[in-house]
Nucleic acid binder design. Structure first.
Lengths: 146, 146
DNA sequence: AGTGATAATTAGAACTATTCTAAATAGAGA
DNA sequence: TCTCTATTTAGAATAGTTCTAATTATCACT
């Protein structure tokens, strides 16, 4: 079984869990995110997806991305008011936003850290998610893309 | 000395440090932020400021808010793609975004936590700031505003 | 295979927060 | 007072995203 097939089946399963259908558009959008994990914007996803599916529309790309976010297969990431970026990394991680290059790097988090952070919440605050964003500059970093 | 005067002088000082002038618009915008710390949007600040300075323009409100952010007197806060909110709290704190009410709460952070969080960064990542955002629901919370 | 109901996609218009532009005003220093 | 620059202003422009209405695809059932 190819990786793409594997992804497609995992995707189909997750979609079905939410009562949604698997479609070529959703599959290709998801594949694009998995293939190059550089936190692309919707426009960038649109450009990449077109090579496999030339007739897809930008609206559909937005729809698919939103769907993937709903299914918890993808995280939407926002820095200030710049375009939303999409991240298929499901492990607990923070984002490091390099202000010089504009690139975003995933920073894996030790399992206990999010717990520790959440423990600062006073009684009465029930957090469903915690997001950690670093801003600064990354020097001589290797691979992992932006 | 009144509180407003005190704020105005602190503001004038901070502005001067950046080579900027103190103006009625900047003072009133800053006062509005200090007076009701409910993380207002630019539009909301605009509405509040108008009662003291009826001829101020929205562009000026944006300009003043940007200036205050540059001077490190105010933090700009973004949740997803909703309008930027402004926060004059200078202590180290996280934001809790209540998804039911849309309100934002400041969560004070113990001094060592940001350090601990930053320590997860691999060599080569130089963070200038760390932002922590919680999302969820806040039950029966008192005071402190939205 | 055919049919009806529903889901998904599409193109383009619309929306909204924000920034830009160019002109007017204000304030500091000579 | 004069001049220089900073600031403010109204309105136009921009950009990312969402909405609308029509089309197309897919499913369940026959």
């Amino acid at each position: 079984m190819s990786t793409a097939t594997h992804n497609a089946e995992a995707l189909a399963q997750k979609l079905a869990d939410s009562g949604l259908r698997s479609t070529p558009q959703r599959e290709v959008v998801y594949d694009v995110l998995l293939k190059k994990r550089d936190h692309p914007t919707a426009d960038e996803v649109f450009a990449r997806v077109k090579s496999g599916l030339p007739t897809i529309s930008l609206a559909t790309v937005y729809n698919c991305l939103e769907t993937l976010v709903q299914c918890d297969l993808v995280r939407a990431v926002n820095f200030e008011r710049s375009p939303t970026r999409y991240c298929p990394n499901l492990r607990p991680h923070a984002h490091f936003h390099d202000e010089q290059t504009g690139k975003t790097h995933d920073i894996d988090l030790p399992p206990e850290l999010l717990e520790k952070v959440s423990s600062v919440l006073p009684v009465g605050y029930d957090a469903k998610s915690v997001e950690i964003i670093f801003r600064g500059k990354a020097t001589k970093t290797v691979a992992s893309g932006g």
